[in-house]
């Protein structure tokens, strides 16, 4: 007898495709946030599965802090070109120049400045929905996020007053100026993402795999040596065999020592890992509520 059974990845896949098609059905001007990172790579494949043979009904949007790993941006541009998708890039640099984003004196990280840059891009293109690759297992504040996450006209998230989400019925209705953030990968874990990359044989940027890199030890992490935060006289530069587990800005993304050269190696490594993915992101360590505060202000 034939068994009509879906395994866990097939379940997660059909859930995500359903959500992407709901977006296409209910919103006028959606955008898909694509950074070139592993989660948004899965998201793009799911979009292909949802909409082919038609063109993707959304442009790709990336907020470039100017501090990205060059490997990531190259991958982002190449992938968009392969797909024939429209890629919109808005930079923090330009937002600062136009007075849309104000850096605090002495603040080197551009993490916070992504927020006004994103909100300005939403306004510029009148996007009513931004699809993102965030997952609930990444972080405690993310664990409270709905699939369809409502943002008011200031881009704010109100965690205490979220719309109930029942069965697979998503309420995408908005008034003018309001915005929806949609997260089709909400129920995926880091392991699911890599297993899906393996199953779908998806290409990922080279920095996810083991490579040689000059690093310095800061706050318990190996940070890549870069021009923005050069090593001090007292810091020892080490040439290590590393990879990145999660990609943020080049100055806040910790490298982990690893010899993983294939997706299968990465899966084995994650299965044995004793630290979470975001444990290597300095931007989340500021305080227990670092992510919550950024999200309330309009972060991805």
């Amino acid at each position: 007898m034939k068994s009509y059974h879906l395994d866990h990845l097939q379940h997660l896949e059909t859930e995500a495709i359903h959500i992407l098609r709901e977006v296409a059905g209910e919103f006028e001007r959606p955008a898909l946030l694509f950074s070139g990172g592993k989660d948004s790579i899965c998201l793009l494949r799911l979009a292909e599965k949802a909409f082919r043979p038609s063109d993707l009904p959304t442009p790709l949007l990336n907020i470039d802090t100017g501090h990205h790993f060059p490997e990531l941006n190259e991958f982002r541009d190449q992938r968009a070109q392969e797909l024939g998708a429209k890629l919109i890039i808005r930079t923090v640099e330009a937002a600062i120049a136009q007075g849309l984003a104000q850096p605090v004196p002495g603040e080197i990280s551009r993490n916070r400045l992504q927020i006004p840059t994103l909100l300005a891009a939403i306004e510029e293109f009148r996007f009513d929905c931004c699809i993102g690759g965030a997952r609930r297992d990444e972080e405690k504040a993310r664990a409270k996020e709905r699939f369809f996450s409502f943002r008011d006209r200031f881009g704010q998230w109100d965690p205490k007053n979220q719309r109930p989400e029942i069965w697979n019925l998503y309420n995408g209705r908005l008034n003018p100026g309001e915005n929806m953030r949609v997260f089709p990968l909400s129920n995926w874990t880091e392991m699911d993402v890599w297993e899906y990359i393996q199953r779908e044989q998806l290409a990922v940027p080279s920095i996810y795999f083991s490579h040689q890199r000059a690093c310095v030890r800061r706050s318990g992490q190996w940070l890549p040596v870069n021009q923005l935060t050069p090593p001090t006289a007292r810091e020892e530069v080490r040439n290590l065999v590393v990879r990145v587990r999660t990609i943020g800005d080049i100055m806040s993304t910790g490298c982990v020592e690893s010899t993983a050269t294939t997706v299968a190696d990465i899966i084995t490594e994650i299965a044995a890992a004793r630290i979470t993915e975001r444990g290597s992101r300095a931007d989340d360590k500021t305080s227990e509520a670092a992510m919550e505060d950024r999200k309330k202000a309009g972060y991805f």
């Binding site: 297992d137 899966i267 299965a271 890992a273 004793r274």
Partner: peptide
């Protein structure tokens, strides 16, 4: 959340 109890060799298959 990660899944340390999953047997790595078979987890993908």
């Amino acid at each position: 959340m990660l899944t340390p109890l999953m047997p790595s060799a078979s987890s993908a298959t």
